[in-house]
Amino acid sequence: MAKWTTDDLPDLTGRTVVVTGAGRGLGLITARELARAGARVVLGVRDVGKARAAVAGLPGTFDVRPLDVADLASVRAFAGSWSGPLDVLVNNAGVMDVPAARTADGLDRQTTTNHTGPFLLTNLLLGHVTDRVVHVTSQLHRRGELDLGDLDWRTRAYHGMAAYQASKLAVVLFSLELQRRLDAAGSPVRSVLASPGIARTALAAHSRSNVVNRFRFLTNSPEQGALSVLYAATADVPGNAYVGPAGPGGLRGGPAVRRAGKAGLDAALARRLWDATAGLVEAAAR
């Protein structure tokens, strides 16, 4: 698998894939390659104009729709307008180590973008999904710590990188609990995790604790980083598989099925997180 490339993508003709945050970076590369392999790719993006310009002239079928996963009304509108089957949902949109800010719903921006919004989107679209949900996480989930009593950073001092690590741990735990629920329901749908390693994209480059420019030998190019997402979206992997770079520390290299960090395998914590996240969504709706 370490030598797997986009040339190994299967024929995706007739399949429909949603990729969030697909206007640039890993999301755009993922959308481009899935469309090249024959899929109809729906890009859920904040800036529709820029995304349309980005895919103009590329081979394949693209459908660009407005979606801001940090805005729960936007998430509901996107999901509410969906009809027909959806083979693969790729929850790619994310931010990293951003300053403290609140969304229109009064929620922490980073937590909502990386976890709460995708949680809601997945649950709203799940009845349409026929194959799998792919959650883009990070190796930094291994350093994450969750405070379920303050998941939304209201009472603690906010720290951008700590919030990022916690949100990516939440993504891993969400996949674990989602897969448990799918199995319990007898569903064939899979929940799969993808880590691009440390990819040299705008997401990481602006981080105040940036390692991209100082330690480039530890990083993946955006094209390499997208391979883990593409493999997770198309290969025959088991439910809750964790796909990441095959190199040391899971930081760079071609895709391989690896193992999530210990905290990401805590089933009891995953169930409690699900309830806490649902509570945030319900409170925001009131």
Score class of each variant (00 low, 15 high):
residue 196 P to W: 02
residue 196 P to G: 01
residue 196 P to F: 00
residue 197 G to F: 02
residue 197 G to N: 04
residue 197 G to R: 02
residue 198 I to C: 06
residue 199 A to D: 01
residue 199 A to K: 05
residue 201 T to F: 03
residue 202 A to T: 15
residue 202 A to K: 13
residue 202 A to W: 10
residue 203 L to H: 05
residue 204 A to P: 05
residue 205 A to Y: 15
residue 206 H to Q: 15
residue 207 S to T: 15
residue 207 S to R: 10
residue 208 R to T: 15
residue 210 N to L: 06
residue 210 N to D: 11
residue 211 V to R: 12
residue 211 V to A: 11
residue 211 V to S: 12
residue 212 V to W: 09
residue 214 R to D: 13
residue 215 F to C: 05
residue 216 R to M: 08
residue 216 R to Q: 13
residue 217 F to I: 10
residue 217 F to K: 05
residue 218 L to G: 05
residue 218 L to D: 10
residue 219 T to K: 00
residue 219 T to G: 03
residue 220 N to I: 13
residue 220 N to W: 07
residue 221 S to H: 11
residue 222 P to Q: 11
residue 223 E to H: 06
residue 224 Q to V: 09
residue 224 Q to P: 02
residue 224 Q to T: 08
residue 226 A to I: 09
residue 226 A to Y: 02
residue 227 L to N: 01
residue 228 S to I: 12
residue 228 S to N: 07
residue 229 V to G: 00
residue 229 V to R: 01
residue 229 V to D: 01
residue 230 L to A: 07
residue 230 L to H: 05
residue 231 Y to G: 09
residue 232 A to M: 08
residue 232 A to C: 10
residue 236 D to M: 11
residue 237 V to T: 02
residue 237 V to G: 03
residue 237 V to I: 09
residue 237 V to R: 02
residue 237 V to Y: 04
residue 239 G to R: 12
residue 240 N to K: 08
residue 240 N to F: 03
residue 244 G to A: 10
residue 245 P to W: 00
residue 245 P to I: 02
residue 250 G to K: 06
residue 251 L to W: 14
residue 251 L to Q: 08
residue 252 R to G: 00
residue 252 R to T: 10
residue 252 R to L: 11
residue 253 G to A: 09
residue 254 G to C: 11
residue 256 A to R: 10
residue 256 A to P: 10
residue 257 V to K: 05
residue 259 R to V: 10
residue 260 A to F: 08
residue 261 G to K: 00
residue 262 K to G: 08
residue 262 K to P: 14
residue 263 A to Y: 05
residue 263 A to D: 14
residue 264 G to Q: 07
